[in-house]
Design a protein around this nucleic acid. Structure first.
Lengths: 425, 425
DNA sequence: CTGTTAGCGCATTCAG
DNA sequence: CTGAATGCGCTAACAG
């Protein structure tokens, strides 16, 4: 507790300034002096005082990752990817995490989300990454955008991963419910979707610790420049987005079921207020509509909203769906976890998957391939998306055009879907 | 970025000290003044400067949670529980997380673990919680204990969850491999295991913000006192432990299989260097030995070590086991995830579970009950253990006697285990 | 109850 | 290349 820079300086017979310089390593120091200092640091077991350092330098190495549910591998995979991006590629010998990447569990609560953002703002976090779908409550959206705007203004990099970009002011008065639209995401979808693997690295791999805008004055100058470069889709707020193609994925999934011959397709959706829920549902309905107007008309009745993205919601939702529409021959679930719950409910009702009812999930979490039957689902490149978000948060990769990168979704056809059995009744 | 306490003070027409007082809330301030200040804070969108505050107060509200694999629900559940404990029960109006509980993903790497601890130490974290099994490398153990000791000495609370307590100096020269011993954990196991649900709360629910050792002088005094109260099992280092009864759980599981009639029981274990692996294996062998010396003798050949606690290790391990000992009628897995991999390999070899081979997991993660067949496993009260660890980290619950609380493991018999089929050959 | 006064430990100016 | 001096923004002691 007690040992400070001054102690180290005294032991090494140098000034505190010199110790500071060898520790931060961004300033020339004589080799002999340097090693003397390093030895003193070691002998005294000196550990830098983060708060003091952050105060003096007006910067911190904290990076916050907000997740809706830390016990859900969906978020775990993304968070792990972001975090791994903070560590590797630092070059230096014995390099470890230069950044303290920390994940904060909001439990899906808007309030907690804001609270964590405040806490992170207090710490002057270098970046924050928000993962997963957002809650579409106007009041909360406004509060959230305000926080994010201020964070960005303070120089904190803000990256959204798996969440649509905030609407730019001009785009206000959204149209939740309309199957398609002109939001930022739609724009990205329309264009050539950016694929993570093809992404161009902004810097050469070996380039380490390039000093950029280090002094307070330089920093200020950079900030002053930012407004000039502003584009659309949240980029104007300095917010970058890695979005998932939830609509496209759901569309492909439903199309797959229709192609198999299913006509009564139930949907056990997530909580209605989340963007992810809405987008997947929209994709589903779009596929229905594309097939025939009749299917589209009945969709409402065949949709059940669960209270969450958990197994219980799938279980309950499936029972409700069966009660409401016993004729369903296929059930789409909000995600893989929900799909497992659906399967459980179905089995309990004596229905076999896929012989009696086909079931499909979303996300392709690791366990999905191992479920039995193996789950037909939509693969989202969670890890790659998280890694990309991490790189953007670190400024290690050039922002995508428009500030939004949309990541592809891939249909994974496995054993849980099959043609409907011929009607015997 | 620019707005500081002084700005708020100026706007509210009070001194900076007063603003600080209303914000920290631990000092009497006149109602009128308070609301004036609050309004100014609001209008200016003022956000406290964490580093400055931490520096001045010589304390921080950061709590670190170290996990081996953030994508593994085992850790997600524990981490979520710890985190939720940081938020709730704070009493105050509009209360959110007073503590910034953050989870750090070590990826199971000892180096990363140390690095994160250093980072947390830099930030003068209020507490750190280390979850999951430790790596039993003497060199790393020494380094780790050194870090933890220093952290504890700095006033950071250190809590281990799902990891055995560090050996007290006198207990050095451990006996990895011996089926039983006199380590700290064994002591705890021998005594009445502390059950989380019955745990007594240290404080009344309503008691908020009781000031303890607030001034630097008082703080110093308390720290000086600590050495006097030292007990055993890491308590001497100020380290508290919530341990899992891995040995007992594995013992019960193996006993279950033996009772069903199995005699050739394979074991697809985790990485050999981890404490969790060793303890579960020891429990398994103990049950074998208790049944008959003959079984114990053959155990070595029936044990395969995987590279991790993931599905792939289970898959590979099972294939190796089948090659080495095709006669197995039951397979125990390192954990549920590994068990899923084992099942997959078995099925691929045309073996049915449980008709041809019984399979059992460990942990009882949420998906285990949904697997088909539903997995027989050992339930570990992950959430409760994490919550308890969180409370200990906050000092909200009295430390268990000896500094170690062992949490019960419960056998969950489901569909993946059955009697061996009568030998037809 | 409130204002004034000192630092907390470090990074960064400026002089050497 | 190095040392001395200044202040980051806040909290805590001290007087009123």
């Amino acid at each position: 507790m007690a040992v400070t820079l001054a102690d180290v300086a005294a032991r090494a017979g140098v000034s505190a300034a010199t110790v500071s310089r060898v520790l931060s390593g961004n300033y020339p120091v004589a080799g002999a002096t340097r090693s003397r200092v390093l030895r003193a640091v070691d002998e005294l077991e000196y550990v830098i005082n983060g708060p003091a350092s952050a105060l003096a330098a007006a910067s911190s190495d904290l990076v916050g990752i907000l997740v809706n549910d830390i016990a859900d591998p969906f978020f775990g995979i993304i968070a792990g990817a972001v975090q791994s991006e903070m560590n590797g590629a630092e070059g230096g010998p014995g390099a470890g995490p230069r950044k303290l990447a920390v994940v904060c569990n909001t439990g899906g609560s808007p309030g907690q989300e804001l609270t964590y953002l405040t806490l992170l703002q207090r710490q002057r976090a270098a970046a924050v990454v928000l993962t997963g779908g957002a809650v579409e409550d106007p009041e909360h959206s406004a509060a959230l955008e305000g926080r994010l705007r201020r964070l960005a203004a303070d120089g904190t990099r803000v990256v959204l991963c798996g969440r649509p970009p905030p609407r730019t002011p001009g785009e206000r008065g959204g149209r939740p419910g309309k199957p398609d639209g002109a939001s930022g995401e739609a724009v990205a979808e329309a264009g050539e979707p950016v694929r993570v693997r093809d992404a161009v690295r902004a810097e050469e791999p070996g380039a380490e610790g390039r000093r950029q805008a280090r002094t307070p004055l330089e920093r200020r100058a950079v900030r002053a420049l930012l407004p000039e470069q502003r584009g659309g889709s949240g980029e104007g707020l300095g917010i970058l987005t890695v979005a998932f193609d939830n609509r496209g994925g759901a569309r492909a999934l439903t199309a797959h079921l229709l192609a198999l011959g299913h006509r009564a397709v139930g949907y056990v959706a997530g909580p209605p207020e989340r963007t992810t829920t809405r987008h997947r549902l929209e994709g589903h309905r779009a596929a229905l509509a594309a097939h025939s107007p009749g299917l589209s008309a009945g969709a409402e009745r065949l949709t059940v909203h669960g209270g969450g993205y958990d197994r219980g919601s799938g279980y309950d939702g499936a029972l409700e769906l069966l009660r409401r529409a016993p004729e369903v021959t296929a059930v789409l679930a909000a995600n893989d976890t929900v799909a497992l719950g659906v399967c459980a409910a179905l089995r309990e009702r004596g229905l076999r998957v896929p012989e009696d009812v086909s079931v499909a999930g979303f996300d392709d979490l690791p366990f999905s391939a191992d479920a039995s039957p193996a789950l037909t689902t939509v693969r989202l490149p969670l890890y790659e998306a998280g890694a990309r978000a991490g790189r953007l948060a670190l400024g290690r990769q050039a922002p995508p055009p428009g500030g939004v990168a949309t990541v592809r979704a891939e249909l994974m056809v496995r054993a849980s879907t099959a043609p409907p059995r011929p009607r015997t009744g």
